[in-house]
């Protein structure tokens, strides 16, 4: 197996999706000749033509509405939102229209749309580019929110998202695009949606996390191992809906849990995981659930972002707190 970057895996998945199904279309701002501002669609227009991979005018709501309209002709759109911080401009198309579509048409219409978008901080992007807004999406019934952490998952989950007849919000961690490499199986394969994965086994505590924070959590686990604390790490992969079975199994195994997210503390995925654990598995808990999250402020872009974002040390400290609780 070849080692590939996260972004290479995403490009490869889109290449295979286009090859596999002639109904797949890719569009967004600058995705054509330029291959996207991060080159996620590099070479795809050249390979599949302007009819299937094309630029749009600069208007997110138009992109979302167009995706919905194209489903009437049985297309399966992969629409790119250049940065997820721009999602507010397309909230009606996403949350008001495509998420409600299946319900509104009593199942007589399908909305097989993938909304791809980079999110997350630590790369010194301008204001309103780096926010982690998955919580907004997860609050919306009718959407599936997928946030891969590795190149292998990015490819397999994206292909599953394209095959899904439900709309999928596919959030790619910007910091991971070129900072990590991993084994990526050749050819077409799918990785199941709605399934979390235990990415590190351990007995003393569980870190439940997703996206970019999976790597931060794994690094924290390695440090903790040096001090004799054996940590399990669960990568949610799909953050809505949640895989409660996998979460529960790990909670029952270790009895001590830290939830880690890059998003602000208020509401969001971490809060949802904590409340589900409290409702379902409280008798297995040996300590209060710990939470690592960004502070409840507006995202401070560029200069101070690395101070503000949750770090490996924050996770190490929180795991120790939970492990040492009597």
């Amino acid at each position: 197996m070849a080692k590939k970057t996260y972004i290479q895996a995403i490009t490869e998945a889109q290449d295979l999706a286009l090859a596999n199904d002639e109904n797949v279309l890719i569009f967004g701002e600058d995705v054509g000749k330029n291959g996207g501002v991060f080159r996620a669609t590099d070479g795809l227009q050249e390979k599949y033509g302007e009819d299937r991979v094309f630029n749009t005018p600069l208007a997110e709501s138009g992109i979302g509405g167009m995706a919905i309209g194209l489903t009437t002709q049985n297309y399966r759109p992969i629409m790119e939102i250049q940065f997820f911080g721009f999602v507010y401009e397309v909230m009606d198309s996403i949350a008001g229209q495509m998420a409600r579509g299946r319900f509104r048409f009593h199942g007589t219409r399908k909305f097989p749309i993938v909304v791809r978008s980079p999110y997350g901080g630590g790369t010194k992007t301008p204001e309103m580019h780096a926010d982690s807004l998955e919580g907004l999406m997860a609050q919306t019934p009718g959407l599936r929110v997928v946030m891969p952490a590795t190149p292998e998952d990015a490819k397999g989950l994206l292909l599953s998202a394209v095959e899904s007849d439900d709309p999928v919000i596919f959030l790619e961690n910007l910091r991971l695009y070129r900072s990590i490499r991993g084994e990526v199986p050749e050819g077409y394969y799918t990785t199941p949606l709605d399934k979390a994965k235990v990415v590190r086994e351990g007995n003393d505590a569980t870190i439940i996390t997703y996206g970019g924070m999976v790597h931060t959590s794994l690094a924290a686990a390695e440090e903790l191992a040096k001090e004799g604390i054996d940590v399990e790490v669960v990568d949610l992969r799909t953050v809505s809906p949640l895989d409660l079975d996998t979460i529960g199994q790990s909670v029952e195994k270790t009895g001590r849990v830290v939830v880690a997210q890059e998003a602000q503390r208020q509401a969001g995925i971490g809060a949802m995981v904590m409340s589900e654990i409290s409702e379902r598995f409280i008798m297995s808990l040996k300590a209060p659930i710990g939470r690592v999250a960004a502070p409840d402020s507006v995202y401070p872009f560029a200069l101070a972002e690395n101070e503000w974002l949750p770090k490996e040390d924050d996770i190490i400290e929180k795991v120790k707190e939970v492990v040492n609780f009597d």
Partner: peptide, 27 residues
């Protein structure tokens, strides 16, 4: 249920029908 009608649900969020029509037209 809209199986046999090439039509869309009456739009409540006024304006959304325009972007959706653009997509259908492109399709």
């Amino acid at each position: 249920e809209f199986e046999d009608v090439n039509g869309w649900m009456p739009q409540i969020i006024i304006g959304a029908q325009y972007v959706e029509a653009a997509g259908a037209a492109l399709g």
